[in-house]
Design a protein around this nucleic acid. Structure first.
Lengths: 352, 352
DNA sequence: CAGTCGGCGGCAAACGTTATCATCGCTGGG
DNA sequence: CCCAGCGATGATAACGTTTGCCGCCGACTG
């Protein structure tokens, strides 16, 4: 493999000139530039990453930890992050932590080893090591959170207003006439889930319906959605709607309902979260809170790189807008009319 | 940030000893080892990646290109790759090519720059540059394909027997009594899709039913599944089943059928490919060809690292077993009994 | 014509590590 | 008692690059 010396020799210049041609071409005379470029192409020379990295102290890499890549929501955020990073000349080092803090910890070492210049954390886990690394740096830690956040560490993050989003979800159900509502939440240690839970209960209080809110925890997987739905059905009767803190749990829940012979939305309305691509294809299509995945990825990268490049002295978090997407999994509860008003049972029930 | 000199000074030893303590601890006397370790922990020293990389010529990184991370099948393979790599001490550089050969090409440069030691290609795209890099290396190119493969380049790969898998899918339908079958294939430049198409037609020939096979191309997305299904329905009547070359297109197709008032499997049977996690949750649950995603990832990494480490002189491709998972989206066509035999219309139609 | 200025390119240091080789002291065997 | 040998550690040479500094030369101006 040819190195910069080989190129220099062949072009009859010094290695400094070769380096200059490659990094700042206009700092060198056109004639020499041509000579060098010829040698470069002839030898198939490419700058060696390690040498450059060592000299410049920049690896042009960012580390992204994800609790679970196979979660379509995360994978789409990742996709956006990757694209944005790439556009800025950065590569992405992938770390699937599988919800394991130990793994995340191992990966965090890459930051300290200067293998990566910055660190994006998806999911709520943030190990002690990461926390520590984030503090030991003079100035701003090169860490940004996305979607989730760890309340312990004072780390800038970009996400939607989960409190408001959950409020909107439940508001939608109230406006349809629902009152007794099940909630399939996330793990208790998830700040995101806590925020959404607060959003729902806050809105329920306004309605004076706190008692009618039934919560079952899940872990954002399809299976946990099933389990939670079964719990909900066993624990509470007269439920007319279920809010799920992500679409996968909603899909799992809808499957349970279907197997029990319950029809969505006739018997029960279901609302999801995230608006993953499959949400449009469920039966019936899922009403859900859409998150701006693309923008989340873009903003996260922008924020991180601003910190890394020292273009900002005080990084602030970013809140992006969410959007309620009403599809066909929600409708007024049985026994009410279109407006959500309770009607006489004798009247024909109209829907959608 | 403390470097090896700082540690050496503090421990009162040479840098060589520090390096030894960290890499081969038993090559150094216990007393010195302790002294060094104390200094290391006190200073929070971690080996600098760039220095190590430059010296050892090993980056401990592999590059993985994926046509589309948001495809759940790919993301699960990626997950397995990442885990296996991690276990072997390697990190994964992620490259989402978005089906763009130019992007893949840019990323391939990382291999030449020695930024990554090896290269895993998911998807069928393989740019000229990659092809070239794979040849310029003396000995084996550090490239392994997964799932798909490029027939042009002689690159080892790991995948299922797509020909046989497609045969099994269509065999299943024939055995149920279907004959006139629609196929939603992949892009024509996809070798994987070609193989599967060959598998279906080969099996159809045995049945003397080539004329009853109707093919529409897709591109593995949900939307393309819808489009292809519409084409199929418009072009061919009397179709009793559809085989799709991935689950997402199957889900898209089933949505079209549903909107047209067609019931699966009563009116039409549907078979998918991949067995993504959502396949179990479609309505009805999708019959599909399961791929051993976990094993594909493991084997790919194993194969690549064997090449990288020079543990093998001639890398051969790996074929992993697939499996037909029969769920509820397939049944005998209307007008036949359980055994798949054509019956009198007057008889009651039984199913499942 | 002489002096100065600017553009271009070379020299060399530094980035942080590992591995090879040399060295030194100690031990054990002849 | 001496020397061979061995175990432990130190000195040092790369690995390949970028970049500050400086010198040279040509051109332009007074």
């Amino acid at each position: 493999m040819a190195n910069i010396f080989d190129v220099a020799k062949r072009a009859g210049v010094s290695i400094a000139t070769v380096s200059r041609v490659l990094s700042r071409p206009d700092a060198v005379a056109p004639a020499t530039r041509r000579k060098v470029m010829q040698a470069v192409t002839h030898l198939g020379y490419t700058t060696n990453a390690a040498g450059k990295h060592l000299r410049t102290q920049r690896s042009d890499k960012i580390l992204v930890t994800i609790p679970d890549i196979s979660n379509p929501f995360y994978s789409r955020v990742l996709q956006s992050i990757e694209e944005s990073a790439q556009r800025e000349g950065y590569s992405v080092l992938l770390a699937d932590t599988q919800h394991d803090l130990k793994r995340e910890e191992r990966y965090t070492l890459m930051l300290r080893r200067r293998d990566a210049e910055g660190f994006i954390v998806l999911g709520h886990g943030l190990s002690d090591v990461a926390f520590e690394v984030s503090r030991e740096t003079s100035g701003l830690a090169h860490i940004v959170g996305a979607c989730e956040f760890n309340s312990r560490a004072n780390i800038p993050r970009v996400n939607i207003d989960n409190h408001a989003a959950a409020r909107d979800a439940i508001e939608h159900l109230y406006s349809l006439g629902h009152r007794r509502i099940g909630v399939i939440a996330g793990p208790v240690d998830s700040a995101l889930s806590r925020d959404r839970l607060e959003g729902t209960t806050a809105r329920a209080k306004v309605q004076r319906a706190e008692k009618d809110l039934v919560v079952a925890p899940g872990d954002f997987t399809l299976e946990s959605g099933e389990k939670a739905a079964e719990q909900l059905l066993a624990r509470a009767d007269r439920l007319t709607a279920i809010v799920c803190f992500n679409d996968q749990m909603a899909i799992g829940a809808m499957d349970v309902l279907r197997r029990r012979g319950l029809v969505v939305p006739d018997d029960l309305s279901v609302v999801g979260f995230d608006d993953i691509s499959f949400a449009r294809y469920t039966v019936p299509p899922l009403t859900t809170i859409a998150q701006p995945v693309r923008e989340i990825g873009q903003e996260t990268v922008r924020l991180l790189l601003a910190i890394v490049r020292g273009q900002t002295s005080s990084a602030v978090s970013v809140i992006l807008p969410h959007r309620l997407v009403v599809r066909e999994s929600t409708a007024p509860p049985a026994g009410t009319n279109k407006r959500g008003r309770r009607v006489q049972i004798e009247e024909p029930v109209s829907r959608r």
